[in-house]
Design a protein around this nucleic acid. Structure first.
Lengths: 128, 128
DNA sequence: TTATTAATGAAAACAATCTTCAACTGGTTA
DNA sequence: TAACCAGTTGAAGATTGTTTTCATTAATAA
């Protein structure tokens, strides 16, 4: 794969903030600097980057799907409902549960989705 | 809230199978018996039923969002990528993790999403 | 009966995503 | 150098998914 200016811009935009962005939001941000980028390129690039695990797809909360920069290794996410801040966390292992489910159901499990949502400290204070 | 024929039909349709259905799929099924139901009613009903926890929204896998009938109490889901079958499971408690995250991040956590996907037994056999 | 409210369906508006295709890019080869 | 080629892009339009608007209907209460 080539690291084209467009792809670089998409990665930079997603990596720039600590939050998660919808495809449209990404398009709008990238468009500020690359005024001739097409929305199609955004979708294609997101698909590619997600496949390469450079970015992560988020499903919980309102803006589904949205994307955040991918941390190294396997991890899960905690996002703020209000400002959209995303925190990665690791050290939580689901293989025991996965084994239990495999035994109980006979499923061949190939992936899972674990996300938390809530209010971050800053937004909690603002709410008062 | 009133239990109108339309709402009853939507619930029945979702409850009838063991799988999960997208709004469009639900519309098509309900439409067979209630040929004059509007797609709008489907969306409104799904929103209402989800709020009342009578149905559950699924996010993992391809068809996002899709809906399945809501089991009693708090539970999570395991779905088959191939036939769409959904299995509810309980007895997995995330409050420890939730407390850890609250301490570490200061978030006030209000919900989570935990889903597994894979291949059910039947679809595994078919694949061979 | 009348007044009131909730729910519905149709159409249109809106938004998100995908397909198609011609043009362009950078690198390779003759 | 020129011709070539796979990968990438942007524009337009098609398709799909979701929401809004509004007039009509059904149910309920006074």
């Amino acid at each position: 794969y080539k690291l084209t200016p467009q792809r670089r811009a998409v990665i930079r935009t997603i990596a720039a903030g600590q939050d998660h962005l919808t495809p449209i939001e990404i398009y709008e941000k990238v468009h500020q600097d690359h005024s001739n980028i097409g929305l199609v390129t955004i979708y294609r690039t997101l698909e590619l980057l997600a496949k390469l695990k450079l970015i992560c797809e988020l499903h919980a909360g309102n803006n589904c799907p949205s994307y955040t920069i991918g941390a190294e290794g396997h991890h899960h996410h905690l996002t703020c409902n209000h400002c959209g801040k995303v925190i990665d966390f690791t050290g939580y292992d689901l293989t025991n549960l996965e084994q239990r489910l495999t035994l109980e159901t006979g499923f061949k499990i190939d992936s899972h989705l674990l996300e938390f949502t809530g209010l971050c400290q800053v937004c909690q204070k603002e709410a008062t």
